[in-house]
Amino acid sequence: MKLDDKLYLVRFNTDKLNHIKILNNDVCLRCETKPCTFICPAHVYDWDEEENRIAVGYEGCLECGTCRVGCPYENIKWEYPRGGFGVSWKNG
């Protein structure tokens, strides 16, 4: 089953405010392995070849916090979405 089809099953109350920020795009340019692009269970982070930067799809964030711990340069400012927003599990 494709990840996109799985994420389609998740209930979100999407905030218009982005709760994730890449602190410095230059750091990503120097980052060889770019772990955020594969360790995130929701594939929120994607390397944008044209723009030469990490594209962040915060709307699909499952709020596990893996990216914040896993970025080798502590270059991801990941915070909780505002109260009441974000993922809302159906089963947990």
Binding site: M1, L3, K6, L7, L9, V10, P41, A42, L62, E63, C64, G65, T66, V69, W89, K90, N91, G92
Partner: peptide, 9 residues
């Protein structure tokens, strides 16, 4: 049938 996909630390 998969009903939900979840992630956690």
């Amino acid at each position: 049938e998969t009903k939900e996909y979840l992630a956690h630390l």
